[in-house]
Amino acid sequence: MWAVFSVYLIFDYICENDGTSQREICAYTLLPRQTVNNVINALISQGLLRLEGSRHDKRVKRIHLTDAGERYRQQVVTPVREAELQAMAALEPNERRAMIIYVDKFMNALERRIDGIES
């Protein structure tokens, strides 16, 4: 389950941030570098992503969707994102506000714990 969620989270981030780097994905997702690297390599081998050297720093590889990746985005990511929006719309405004507050609190606590692991 976590592996599928990690793949979705990483792929979704790339869809919204074309030309991102693995470092940026790690910072956003809070996933370990090795996990991000493994997912990126798997998606490249499936023909969904391609790497391109950065114009500013050749050591940094920028991640882009391929044409197949864009089709996958339309078939999988877009419907999931639409389902998320519909689920959120089913909540009352006060429920949405409460959820956002608690998720934010949880993410801040999780980030502190993860930072503690990496220290």
Rank of each mutant, 00 (worst) to 15 (best):
P79D: 02
A3G: 09
Y13L: 02
N17S: 10
R112K: 11
I44T: 09
Y72T: 05
E84Y: 14
L49R: 00
M88E: 11
R97H: 05
V4Q: 13
I101K: 03
R62N: 11
I101E: 02
D104G: 14
I25Q: 03
A109T: 03
E92F: 09
D104Q: 13
S45K: 12
D12A: 12
L30P: 06
R59K: 08
V77M: 12
P93M: 01
R59D: 10
Q75G: 05
P93G: 02
D67W: 04
S54Q: 00
G53L: 08
F11E: 01
Q46R: 12
P93E: 02
L31D: 02
S45R: 13
P93K: 02
N108F: 15
D115M: 13
E92W: 08
N108Y: 15
L85C: 09
A3S: 13
L48G: 02
Q46S: 04
A89I: 05
V77P: 01
M88F: 14
F5D: 04
M1W: 07
R81N: 10
V4F: 11
T29N: 03
E118Q: 12
R62C: 11
I14F: 02
F5E: 10
A27M: 12
A89R: 13
N41C: 07
F106V: 02
N37K: 08
R81K: 13
L49D: 06
E84R: 15
Q74V: 13
A109K: 09
W2L: 14
V4R: 15
K105N: 11
R59W: 09
I63L: 08
K105Y: 15
R73W: 09
V39E: 01
A27G: 04
N17M: 01
R59A: 13
Q46Y: 12
F106A: 06
I25G: 06
Y28M: 10
R97V: 15
E84G: 15
I114F: 00
P32M: 00
D104L: 09
N17E: 06
G69S: 04
Q75P: 01
D57V: 01
R81C: 05
E82P: 03
R112P: 00
L48H: 03
L31K: 00
V76Y: 14
H56S: 14
I100Q: 10
R73Q: 14
